[in-house]
Simulated scan of single mutants.
Amino acid sequence: MMTNLFSSFDPLSSIMGLSLNWASSLLGFLFIPYLFWAMPSRWSLLWSSITSTLHKEFKVLLGTSNPGGTILFVSLFSLIVYNNFLGLLPYVFTSTSHLAMTLSWSLPLWVSFMIFGWVNHTQHMFAHLVPMGTPGALMPFMVLIETVSNMIRPGTLAVRLAANMIAGHLLLTLLGNTGPSLSSTLLIFLIGSQILLLLLESAVAIIQSYVFAVLSTLYASEVN
């Protein structure tokens, strides 16, 4: 019996005294070697098409100065979408619903972008703090606003991903807990709504992974 609604997101819950929740994020490594020796299936061809499309899009965003930078962001998209879909399975820990996981992706990326930009393109980074056409009287305020907006970028990336994962899972949990008290007719409608919500959550899992990767790519393109 679940004593707390948020206990499904508790990373301290254990199985037979062993805390194995975070191990769910490592399960994907068991399937990676399969792609190197097996004949290409429809799923592998579909995934190759998706990564190729993302590579072309990220290449346009990054420009010609970073020809191999798309590998990082395509891999980031793949990692996030894998963890998002893994969290949709019953009784599997959702690692992307925790800021400990999402911040561990966004914060190192943002810090590395800032260090690279301020060390190699200092004048460009200073110029980026004042948009073109800003009146002289407003320049100090624009510098302050741009600095604050730049500082909160890793937090907004992490909170956006975690909040969307938590919201959908909570809605599925709330509706699922009402099942035992419903009649057979209402239970059919509940199952149908749960299936529709699961499809919606699958779309959200892909969209949020794409948004995270695209925004990270845009932040990287600004420091060049």
Rank of each mutant, 00 (worst) to 15 (best):
T134D: 00
S181Y: 10
G17Q: 03
T147C: 04
V204M: 05
G136Y: 05
A23F: 03
M142N: 00
V81M: 04
S52I: 04
L144V: 04
G179E: 13
A100C: 00
Q123I: 12
M165R: 03
M139C: 06
S24E: 13
W118H: 10
A205T: 09
N4L: 10
V223M: 07
V211P: 01
A213T: 06
F116M: 10
G155E: 06
L5H: 07
I207V: 12
G168Q: 01
G117K: 01
L182M: 15
F113C: 07
L26N: 03
L186G: 15
N164H: 11
S106K: 01
L186T: 09
T217P: 04
G87M: 02
L26I: 05
V204C: 00
E222L: 08
P180I: 08
F126H: 15
F9S: 01
H55S: 15
L129I: 11
A158L: 01
F93M: 08
F113H: 09
V74Y: 00
Q123D: 13
P67R: 08
L109K: 10
S24Q: 12
L187Q: 14
F126Q: 13
S75A: 14
F31C: 07
K56H: 12
L89S: 06
T156M: 11
N224G: 12
N120T: 12
V148L: 14
L157R: 07
L107D: 00
V111N: 11
Y210G: 00
M165E: 04
E57Y: 09
F73A: 02
I191F: 01
I206F: 14
E57T: 12
V204A: 07
S75M: 09
V214S: 06
L89Q: 10
S97L: 01
P131K: 05
G168S: 03
G176C: 07
S19L: 05
F29C: 07
G69E: 09
D10P: 03
M2T: 11
P131G: 10
W43E: 10
K59T: 13
